[in-house]
């Protein structure tokens, strides 16, 4: 068996194309007609849904300001949450561009690098961004429950009850861990592509990994600082 034989075998196939290797012009026309009504990609849909979820939550916090008992601490807390959610929606738009803006008519190696960047750098930001929203949903839900059950939102009672914090932590940790597992899966998939000798990709991927790690730490630190500070100031305002 020589390389020439392989080439010969490959060349010979053009004369004996069989189904499914040929489509008539009509079949192609029918197929491309369906494309105009095709839905958006799943990653784009995921980000849209997450942004809608956040918009609904902003509405919920604003509603709680109107229907609940007003106090400086509650106004401060609710406004902080609205700001936090608005910022996360803004970040979602940036992520949307990064995750969906890969041009597949670019060279293969460059597309792979961009995909790796998107998965390693931007996807973790999205899942932190989305996991942070759940505790905010749970807290708003608790307040609504109190309002409809007892006629007042129970803002102070909730903040002084350790069970609330337990639920808030669980609301963050469970989706975070689930998404982290799916993220690991994605990284393994990406690494399986590299199961070969492509030094130009390996070096870039290594740099991306370091960049991504730093970025992830920065985002987590920023979010925890913001939410922690908001909670601390709210508690301070309640006590004074």
């Amino acid at each position: 068996m020589s390389a020439k034989n392989i080439e010969q075998i490959w060349e010979d196939q053009s004369g004996k194309e069989k189904k499914p290797e040929t489509m008539s012009e009509d079949e192609i026309r029918e197929t491309t007609l369906m494309f105009s009504s095709r839905n958006v990609s799943s990653s784009r849909r995921l980000i849209w849904f997450d942004s809608i979820y956040k918009i609904v939550l902003i509405g919920a916090y604003l509603t709680l300001l109107i229907i609940g008992t007003l106090s400086t601490a509650k106004v401060f807390f609710s406004v902080s949450m609205v700001f936090c959610l608005s910022y996360l929606i803004f970040r979602n738009q940036k992520l949307h561009v990064s995750l969906t803006g890969i041009n597949e008519s670019d060279p293969v190696i460059s597309v792979l690098q961009k995909r790796y960047d998107a998965i390693l750098v931007f996807y973790p930001e999205f899942f932190i961004n989305s996991s942070v929203t759940h505790p905010l949903f749970v807290f708003a839900g608790f307040q609504f429950y109190h309002f409809f059950r007892y006629g007042e939102d129970g803002f102070y009672r909730l903040l002084s009850d350790p069970v609330t914090y337990l639920f808030l932590i669980l609301a963050f940790v469970i989706p975070y861990v689930a998404q982290k597992m799916s993220y690991r899966w994605m990284i393994n998939e990406m690494d399986s592509i590299l199961d070969t000798d492509y030094s130009e990709l390996e070096e870039k991927f290594r740099v991306t990994r370091i960049k991504a790690q730093r970025r992830r730490r920065r985002i987590i630190f920023m979010l925890i600082s913001f939410l922690g500070l908001a909670l601390f100031l709210t508690l301070f305002l309640i006590m004074t």
Binding site: E104, S105, D106, P107, V108, V111, L112, R115, N188, E189, M190, S192, I193, D195
Partner: peptide
């Protein structure tokens, strides 16, 4: 152009299906 688009798609689908 067709090769680039085709190969990029094929590699991505292969990745998602796990080799």
């Amino acid at each position: 152009w067709m090769y680039r688009v085709g190969l990029n798609r094929a590699i991505d689908i292969t990745r998602k299906k796990r080799i």
